[in-house]
Design a protein around this nucleic acid. Structure first.
Length: 961
RNA sequence: GCGGGGGUAGCCCAGCCCGGUCAAAGGCGUAGGAUUUAGGCUCCUAUCACUUAGGUGUUCGUGGGUUCAAAUCCCACCUCCCGCACCA
């Protein structure tokens, strides 16, 4: 009889539902436990990978419930954002890639896909899919509190959050560069580009060199090298233009002009200049006043930067090589006779340990670079840049900047140049061309007047640090990552101009983006149920309302009056919040540590008082499928609902939970799921056989039953310990595998009647099934019922160990038996002999005495041990065996850990004769082999090979024949 | 570059914080056996090498070091993975 998963899943889901087992209300008799998991973004159905975080949270919820907590586990859906928008567009365009994925991977019928023609429909469709999946997985969620982030009431809540942030001074406004698609009129991120390329935005410093009535505008990544400029580079082959800006005229390459278009004041005054005509002319370094000339170079790219390059031959391999090329090229020299090559001596600006002078020259020769068009120059440039950036120091020539690390000087010089009006910034896509999915090449756009949440504020950072320090983090190793994140976080753009979401309350052109409207919503769960049930009009949910309910500001009566919500409801809302807050545990994947989870900590510390800051964060790794990352292109995505249908929810839950410890990536495999299915079926079968057995009285336990009970208590202890740290893999390991191994041993060793054994097993499985209940809820309910209980196992309490049932003596005795069998097997293996008889020789008392006395000493040496033993008159007749024996136990004891020592000492001398007698029936039953036990000092000893003298405490001597 | 996490037997994965019970748990796989009409399931045995007496040797990325003792502590190196945002 095998388990029909679908049947029992329906049965129990229905029962949970009817009894509202997962709906949580205020209960002042119980401690509360409020936990949440990052709500899903409904742009695809869930797959196995998504299941990990949610399952873990549910396991924890169920565990905490069994510990007696009033557990609230709610769920909502995150509609905010732009990907669904993009998806709508792709569907409208019949994007084959997306449609294939929907059809082939997720089995969405074409007719349904056709209906998904609006963002909201897509969101609702997947919302429902995901929700069904969660229900089918058996998550113990209080669905009454469900909401979406575009619900009107939720939007009011987010408005309130932003008003709080704004009045608290956490919002700033400014400009920042973004990758931009000029066609779509939207910022582009990695998922918006062909090949999923992240636009790499680099910051050039633009340095202006005065030239006649205009400025020659160069772009550099290394402003600190301005002290080493010997000339400028012009590509004679390309066209330059003179453009009018506010009060300046700039000369830049024609191809780069579009980068400055927004700055150009007078579009009519454009003047085209050929590159060639500039060569040989003079300008001066605006910072050092040194006179320099304009030289020709072919490596200058008209599209890169401004198409003009300041030449620093000492530190830029390109520049160095171009000068070499020029001075060796007789044609050029004669073509531009006004150029004075004496001015082109490299000037060192930065020193490193690796190079003593003109590092570019050394590098060029090391790499045997031939000319300025040699591709190896890219590598050379990169290498020198990195070296000098990380370990370079400014030389005396840098004046005020001398001795500064190059890294520091870079920013200082840049800022000073800007301050002096000599320089400005230019942002550029360094890995261009980056192509938008629509086919247009992306550019950089300065996003003007963008709204930011300023995570860079130092006093706010301090609060966030202290919040992290005051909470529990699971696993603890993740702590440092949080602190690091807090340290390097700065302004985060918090609004966009497209997508679903809440409109920024003070600037209606903006929509609050998704990582900013998802940071304190846990608080909203506490009140969402009542808002829905009382059907509160969102217009009534004013700032004052939330101030009172969430922060206790103001006074109930006046809030009721001004909002028009009745007083008892306001009161109830406030109580509900106060009962459930703070959040006791927040769960998410580790990919959200550097963003969402840290924002969550920040925002709580900004808005809520300290006693409502989060208490715990739990972070888990991701899921691999048979060792590979899950992805549509590998075709290894398994939709969760489909998997539940095929394999059953509980085997999948166990498969996901047992695959890896918290922070590790879990290697999921269907093989594992199948093997769990088999194991559960085995338990199911056994339980069917023993269900009617009478209750077992543990106090009557004897022999191996006693041992099994002891093992069970230990399993309870270690499992509870692991559960508290959410080391679920370890817990399952003990509950499933190790306990099974013990059970197998028990079955081999037990001698009681079948009837008695069944009642013992019934007792055993009742406890074991409780340990399993958080992991495999459907199965556990079913077994629990079969065992004759009519209440849900959800309502049971987590087992605690009974210390009276822990029996060191029995455990040690059993170890002696196992070790002896192992020794016998070892001998058999080596000798490959067939035996009829086993002789076991138990050590004499004097050996135990010496052994125990040696154990008692903190430290001892062999010599003392032998001497004192030899001097003991009681042992005089064994004198000749003492040295050898001492030697053997010396080695054993000095390699023994303190736990084993103390265990043996606690119990003292074992009655080995009695214990090992068990082997007689054991071998009789198994192989019909006779076992004879002797004491080493027996007078009628049968010991043809003289083995008995080798016997040691806990290690009898053996003779086989 | 900055930050984080890994490298353990055929594979996956524990152990490392707190050194000794570690030739190293458990799972999977593989081989032999039992059961079965057969297969599956289940059970037993084996699974680094050598070994006709419970032993020995060599192993935990590499190389050093500390220690009576190192998978575990320290140092250096090699190597793989992930994040660095305005996007969920």
């Amino acid at each position: 009889m095998t388990i029909n998963w679908s049947d029992i899943e329906h049965k129990w889901r229905n029962k949970w539902d009817v009894e509202s087992l997962h709906n949580t209300n205020i209960d002042n008799d119980k401690p509360k436990f409020f936990l949440t998991v990052a709500y899903p973004y409904p742009n695809s159905p869930q797959h196995i990978g998504h299941g990990r975080t949610y399952t873990l949270t549910d396991v924890y919820a169920r565990y905490k419930r069994m510990l007696g907590f009033n557990v609230l586990f709610p769920m909502a859906f995150h509609y905010t954002g732009t990907p669904i928008l993009a998806m709508t567009k792709r569907l409208a365009e019949n994007d084959p890639e997306l449609i294939n994925a929907f059809q082939d991977v997720y089995n969405i019928p074409m007719s349904t896909i056709k209906e998904l023609d609006e963002p909201i429909k897509i969101a609702q469709y997947f919302h429902n899919e995901i929700k069904q999946g969660m229900i089918e997985m058996g998550y113990s969620i209080d669905w009454r509190r469900e909401f979406t982030t575009i619900d009107k009431a939720y939007s009011r809540f987010i408005e309130w959050q932003f008003k709080k942030l704004n009045s608290g001074g956490f919002i700033t406004r400014g400009s920042h560069p973004v990758g931009w698609c000029p066609n779509d009129g939207n910022p582009v991120g990695q998922h918006d580009t062909l090949g999923d390329v992240e636009p790499d935005i680099g910051e050039y410093t633009i340095i202006k060199f005065t030239f006649e009535d205009a400025k020659l505008v160069t772009a550099t990544l290394r402003p600190e090298t301005i002290f080493g400029v010997t000339n400028l580079w012009i590509n004679p082959e390309i066209e330059y233009v003179k453009i009018s800006l506010n009060d300046e005229k700039w000369i830049v390459s024609r191809d780069s002009m579009n980068k400055f278009e927004h700055l150009v004041s007078d579009k009519s005054s454009l003047e085209i200049i050929s590159g060639d005509s500039l060569i040989g002319k003079w300008t001066e370094n605006p910072f050092t006043d040194m006179k320099i000339q304009l030289l020709p170079a072919s490596f200058v790219d008209s599209k890169n930067g401004t198409g003009l390059v300041m030449s620093v031959p000492s530190h830029a391999p390109y520049d160095y090589q171009a000068i070499v090329d020029f001075t060796l090229n007789l044609d050029l020299l004669s073509k531009y006779p006004t150029i004075d090559t004496n001015n082109l001596v490299p000037i060192d600006v930065i020193k490193t340990e690796k190079y003593n002078n003109t590092p570019a020259r050394q590098l060029v020769s090391e790499l045997s670079i031939k000319n300025q068009d040699d591709p190896k120059l890219v590598e050379a440039t990169k290498e020198l840049y990195n070296l000098e950036f990380t370990s370079g120091k400014m030389l005396v020539i840098a004046g005020d900047y001398a001795d500064l690390p190059a890294k520091t000087a870079k920013d200082k010089v840049k800022n000073d140049l800007i301050q002096m009006g000599i320089a400005t910034k230019l942002y550029e896509i360094m890995n261009s061309p980056v192509i938008c999915r629509c086919g247009t090449e992306c550019v950089i756009k300065m996003f003007e007047d963008q709204w930011f949440i300023d995570y860079g504020m130092s006093d706010w950072k301090e609060k966030a640090h202290s919040s992290i320090d005051s909470m529990s983090l699971l696993p603890n190793e993740i702590t440092v990552e949080f602190h690091n994140t807090i340290d390097w976080l700065h302004e985060k753009a918090c609004a966009r101009n497209s997508g679903l979401g809440t409109i920024l309350p003070w600037d209606n052109d903006w929509i609050i983006e998704s990582l900013s409207d998802s940071v304190i919503y846990m608080a909203y769960y506490t009140i969402s149920r009542l808002i829905k049930e009382k059907n509160l009009d969102s217009s009534k949910l004013s700032e004052e309302f939330f101030d009172y309910v969430l922060l206790g500001i103001g006074e109930c009566n006046s809030v009721a009056n001004t909002t028009g919500i009745d007083k008892t409801t306001v009161d109830e809302l406030r109580s509900e919040f106060l009962y459930f807050y703070p959040l006791d545990s927040r769960h998410s994947g580790r990919d959200l540590v550097p963003n969402h989870l840290t924002f969550f900590v920040f925002n709580h510390s900004a808005i809520f008082p300290k006693n409502h800051w989060p208490q715990q964060i739990v972070v888990n790794g991701s899921v691999l499928m048979d060792g590979k990352k899950m992805s549509k292109s590998f075709g290894n995505i398994i939709p969760l609902r489909q998997a539940v249908k095929t394999y059953g929810a509980d085997p999948i839950r166990l498969g996901i939970m047992s695959a890896a410890e918290l922070l590790q990536d879990a290697d999921f495999s269907l093989e594992l799921v199948k093997s769990f299915n088999e194991r559960l079926n085995r338990i199911y079968t056994v339980v069917q056989e023993i269900k009617n057995a009478p209750d077992y009285d543990v106090n009557q336990a004897n022999s191996i039953e006693k041992w099994m009970l002891s093992r069970l208590q230990r399993t309870i202890n270690v499992t509870t310990d692991s559960m508290n740290k959410l080391r679920v893999r370890e817990s399952l390991h003990h509950i499933i595998y190790l306990l099974d191994i013990d059970l197998l041993w028990y079955n081999r060793r037990t001698t009681i009647s079948t009837e008695e054994k069944n009642s013992f097993l019934k007792y055993f499985f009742e406890t074991r099934i409780k340990l399993l209940a958080p992991f495999a809820p459907y199965f556990s309910e079913e077994i629990w019922e079969i065992l004759g209980h009519d209440k849900s196992i959800t309502l049971e309490t987590w087992p605690t160990s009974d210390d009276n049932l822990i029996d060191e003596n029995t455990e040690l005795s059993e170890e002696l038996i196992k070790n002896t069998i192992e020794d016998i097997n070892n001998i058999l293996k080596v000798t490959k002999i067939q035996i009829q008889r086993i002789c076991i020789y138990i050590p004499a008392n004097w050996k135990w005495e010496i052994f125990l006395s040696a154990l008692q000493k903190d430290s001892f040496n062999l010599k003392d041990l032998i001497e004192t033993s030899l001097n003991n008159p009681d042992y005089s007749e064994f004198k000749k065996h003492i040295p050898k024996f001492c030697q053997s136990i010396f080695k054993e004891i000095s390699n023994m850990d303190s736990y084993t020592k103390s265990r043996i000492l606690k119990i003292g001398q074992l009655n080995e004769n009695q214990i090992l007698q068990e082997l007689q029936s054991f071998y009789k039953l198994q192989n019909n082999i006779q076992v004879d036990l002797f004491s080493e000092d027996d007078s009628d000893l049968y010991d043809p090979k003289n083995r008995s003298i080798y016997s040691r405490p806990m290690r009898p001597a053996i003779f086989l024949e």
